[in-house]
């Protein structure tokens, strides 16, 4: 079966972001970018399905500016077969991405679509669920284990109290949690090979989707800084401070 993976280019997870002085967003110029960590897990899972013989083809899709192609190349280097780039410079919000992906899915007809559970920049945690809703497909969100059982998929999910298991019909949408797998590093030969793999270019217009944002971002500010605290010298001093100064115990 064909598996489609959606990947997003975000500021690298280890970068301390800086809010722009004019309050319009965070600084992205000259900042290290990388594939969203949850998307890496999605690619890894799809590639493992191919290695196990359950997936026949893995297609990586990214929506966004020209630089998103680098992220698709990373997915190709990890083992995806080909890429699709929906190019637009419009600020993309989850509903728009879900609509773009829906249009791509209708063309490609995959049986399983894997996304990360959230992007570490907007922290929305919406796109997979929205996509499932738009397609009328089931959703296996926050997945920590996937098992294909005939024409169904068994999904172990990370929920607040522990774990939950659901069986969903195929075709389906899956979103990955951190513990689904450990993504591989792309080797140099595979990075070289990825340069020869095809990336199809599409536009929102060609897909018949209006990607304009529905949420207006009025301003972005830095959160209030915590007052720097004090180091204590001993456990006794710590307990004394907690009891008599902070009064929390």
């Amino acid at each position: 079966m064909k598996v489609l993976v959606a990947v997003k280019r975000v500021i690298d997870a280890n970068v301390k972001v800086r809010v722009k002085a004019d309050g319009t967003g965070v600084e992205t110029a000259n900042v290290k970018m990388a594939m969203n960590p949850f998307c890496e897990i999605a690619v890894e899972e799809a590639v493992r399905m191919k290695e196990a013989g359950t997936a026949t083809e893995v297609v990586a899709v990214a929506c966004g500016p020209a630089s998103s192609q680098e992220t698709i190349r990373t997915a190709l280097a990890m083992g995806a077969d080909r890429g699709i780039h929906v190019q637009t410079d419009v600020e993309l919000q989850p509903l728009a991405v879900a609509k773009l992906l829906k249009a791509v899915i209708e063309k490609e007809q995959p049986r399983i679509v894997i996304l990360g559970k959230q992007a570490i920049d907007d922290d929305s945690n919406q796109t997979g669920q929205m996509l499932a809703g738009l397609l009328g497909w089931p959703q296996g969100t926050f997945a920590s284990k996937l098992t294909i059982e005939g024409d169904k998929l068994r999904v172990k999910r990370e929920v607040d109290g522990g774990l939950e298991t659901e069986i969903v019909n195929l075709p389906t949408i899956v979103t990955t949690d951190l513990r689904l797998n450990e993504p591989r590093y792309a080797s140099l030969p595979n990075i070289m090979k990825a340069k020869k793999k095809p990336i199809e270019a599409l536009t929102p217009d060609a897909l018949g989707v209006d990607p304009s944002p529905r949420l207006k971002v009025l301003k972005v500010v830095e959160p209030a800084k915590r007052k720097s605290g004090a180091k204590v010298k001993s456990v006794a001093e710590l307990v004394d401070k907690l009891r008599n100064e902070a009064k929390v115990i």
Partner: peptide, 9 residues
């Protein structure tokens, strides 16, 4: 947003 490092209105 950004793991709580910025607040968006």
């Amino acid at each position: 947003i950004y793991a709580g490092n910025a607040l968006a209105t």
